[in-house]
Design a protein around this nucleic acid. Structure first.
Lengths: 235, 235
DNA sequence: AAACAGAAAATTGTTAACTGTTTTCAATAA
DNA sequence: TTATTGAAAACAGTTAACAATTTTCTGTTT
């Protein structure tokens, strides 16, 4: 066998089906707001617009639906999802449960490479905030940090679940307030604390910290969603 | 508007696509062991066997894969999944996180109908154990109890996640020991305790109880999967 | 024997046409 | 004007054929 870096360069090209690409393009269009909530997603129209047949579009729509970015009526019509406060509560309560599991395992399994990547994201955050951060940048840096935590948790199923929940979290973060003063002040310190706790290996403290982190994230996003829910989960 | 019972009778027939039905049949075949682990799932062969075209079969296979009952190679070949100890650890750690969220919410939202259904399952368990319970019956009654907890949690996304995880849990429970003496002795009391705690509304106690319940379930199934993992999650 | 190359078969990815249902719209009646 | 009906259009579900890729097989070479 040859050396490792050559193996990486010559590694088998990962097969991406048309459906994968179509799903990516649709997801982007929705996340950028080019496809607004409630807008119908018609297989025929999309396939024509995107220059492919209905098959791959159909498959892509099914993924977009799984990710919660589209909803399907009982009669099979698909529309871009409009996320309500109820959705917000569901997404964040679920996310909290997943993140707590992820960070516990990250405490056990994170290797130096994971830790370095986490630190690099925190540093990026500090630098970007210093020169003025946009909503989009704030959301993407934040999510990238958590992506690495899931990666470090060494739990394929957990990562899959996060991958399907992630786009909804992104949509909600973009609906304002994420780059607010509160965020700018707290984000760097908050994520650095989490990283330090992962390094320390203190699972219980990590759990508590990420729980609080989720509560803060929820509150921040919550302002854009009308009157809050009676009991936004305290424990 | 007419009366309620008539409305129920004349209610719209839920549209089930061919893909839905094919997925059900494939899932059953796998759960019954008629399709053994590693067995290839070929679109053409299955479509012929099941008397439909490849389209619905393709869609069904994608769902079966999502449920973890099948795996797809990088080149698109699909096989019945063989679940390893590593999968067992993943499934049960994830399940624990989901169940803890579910039961907390069940403490808040369960209505008398949910509680009655839970009690009825516990009673069924007692009766079935008294007359000799099979592996299959044990697994199905156990899962039915937890289904109701998720239903009572009033959390659509959480229920969806459970629905995709459930078949893997079922497979693992069937791989022996679930109807063992340990199970028979503990199952009824264990589930009754959980139900009573939901009734009491004590979220923290419910969380702890279901956490312990998951540990017991893990240990029971674990025996069939070779040497245990270093740290099967203690907290 | 083991490794390789090339042809043949098998299999998935993609497309386009067909079928049945749902939705829309316009004409008609209350 | 507001319901109701029926026809037309739009749409998703399904199928079958085609294209591209992967796997298997077989003969050849080392």
């Amino acid at each position: 066998m040859v050396n490792e870096s050559l193996a990486r360069i010559l590694a088998p090209t990962i097969k991406r089906s048309l459906a994968d690409e179509i799903a990516d393009r649709l997801r982007n269009a929705i996340l950028c707001g080019q496809l607004a909530p409630e807008e119908p997603l018609r297989e025929a129209a999309l396939s024509e617009l995107m220059g492919v047949s209905r098959g791959p579009v159909r498959e892509a729509l099914s993924r977009i639906e799984r990710e919660g970015l589209a909803v399907v009526t009982p009669t099979g019509r698909t529309y871009v999802a409009r996320l309500s406060r109820h959705d917000l509560d569901e997404v964040f309560s679920l996310r909290k449960a997943l993140e707590q599991l992820a960070i516990e395992r990250a405490c056990m399994y994170a290797d130096p490479k994971d830790l370095a990547e986490l630190q690099s994201v925190v540093d990026d955050m500090a630098a970007t905030i210093a020169r003025g951060i946009s909503e989009k940048e704030a959301a993407e840096l934040d999510l990238r940090f958590h992506d690495i935590v899931y990666q470090a948790s060494r739990h394929q199923r957990l990562l899959n679940y996060w991958t399907t929940l992630r786009p909804q979290v992104y949509v909600m973060m973009l609906s304002r307030n994420v780059a607010s003063a509160d965020f700018r002040d707290a984000a760097v310190r908050g994520h650095q604390d989490i990283l330090d706790t992962i390094k320390s290996g203190d699972k219980q403290r990590a759990r508590d910290l990420i729980g609080e982190h989720m509560r803060v994230a929820y509150d921040l996003v919550s302002q854009s969603y009308g009157q809050p829910c009676a009991n936004p989960d305290q424990d």
